[in-house]
Design a protein around this nucleic acid. Structure first.
Lengths: 201, 201
DNA sequence: GTATGTGAATTTCTTCACAGCA
DNA sequence: TGCTGTGAAGAAATTCACATAC
């Protein structure tokens, strides 16, 4: 979150920011920001503030974002297509290196810069590519099998967009992205606001 | 999160679940689950467990999900198209009631069950529809203007997929969905694991 | 016997407030 | 003066452990 905010601040041409200014921006307290940063080193200059560029570098380093990550995408449906062209990925150093699907009519067609390949070829192709991270954008009913196949192909860090919670196989890390989840939170706020409670989010 | 897990459990035909079983399933402690539920009433039966169906109803009620929510979608690009056909939305009672874009070549074309309309017509159309919730799936550069227009059209609860943090105008609630965010978390876990720390997520 | 609901204990997170440095 | 970094204080979340109910 800090990284994203810092990038925006940087794109506005600001090169130094105080914890107070930053806190207002991301809706956190200045003390919280300073405390968080204190765990990763002394990065600010008393009386001045924090160097935005240096902070971005440091956080990117901690998150392992200093070099690009090649990704495997499984699922060339609408969601897969949207993710392929999502500009944020490339900006943050995530490059989709291969796309797989199980639909024979899709194989050979292009999705962005990639040709859609047969999911059965995943082990062979990834033996060459060596991707460690992947995205699952398939229907819920096949998500579990896809995850299993990815882990066996050496892809142990997985982002799952399928609307089922897939347990992580041994040695793998899965993050579940549930798009309805956020709508449910909105629905809750709306309900609370309607009943006369503080509408502040 | 509980709601999603409970729905999955229900779809497996289980009608009663203990806090211990549930906790293992969602990777939370049994005590956590019981404590959380204790805040919304006495929903379990000592010696037996929790009735899955009753729990789902209760949580859905709290989240305001007992009746469907009509949504406005702004942005008929790839992401918008993917969201339109995302099966999870309809399952949870979120129905996309209208689609808008600013690209004249798209207007009049269909996206799922909806015809793509001119964003300029948003105020008029929503005066008739009365949607209170909306989704932003437009490029970052126009996200702020789109949000402003939505709020003026009475859409005060907004889910923003554009990769810029848009501050909420007065009286509005915005939730930011950053798809790269989750990849960054994965990248971090990967980095930590590589350096020999506990690879457990 | 089994599993809940909940005060109490514990741990974690956040804020305060101020010494120290530019 | 202005702002950081950080112990101490305070608040919040989590876990423990057990009386209670089925």
């Amino acid at each position: 979150m800090y990284l994203q905010a810092l990038r925006e601040i940087q794109s506005e041409g600001v090169s130094v920011v105080s914890s107070e200014e930053f806190g207002q921006r991301v809706d956190a307290s200045a003390a919280q920001f300073r405390k968080d940063l204190s765990y990763i080193g002394e990065l600010g200059r008393p009386g001045v503030g924090y160097d935005v560029a240096a902070l971005i570098l440091r956080i990117a380093e901690i998150l392992g974002l200093t070099q690009p990550h090649p990704l495997v995408l499984v699922g060339a449906g609408r969601l897969g297509a949207a993710l392929c062209s999502y500009p944020g990925f490339a900006e943050q150093g995530f490059r989709i290196a291969a796309v797989f699907d199980n639909d024979p009519t899709k194989m050979g067609r292009r999705l962005g810069e990639n040709v859609i390949r047969d999911i059965a070829d995943l082990p062979r192709v990834n033996a060459a590519l060596g991707c460690r991270m992947g995205i699952v954008a398939v229907p819920g009913c096949v998500a579990r099998d896809v995850v299993q196949a990815m882990v066996e192909a050496g892809i142990g860090w997985i982002l799952n967009f399928a609307p089922v919670a897939v347990g992580a196989p041994k040695g793998a890390t899965i993050r579940q992205v549930d798009l309805t989840h956020q709508l449910e939170v909105l629905s809750y706020y709306m309900t609370v606001a309607k009943h006369g409670t503080d509408p502040e989010a």
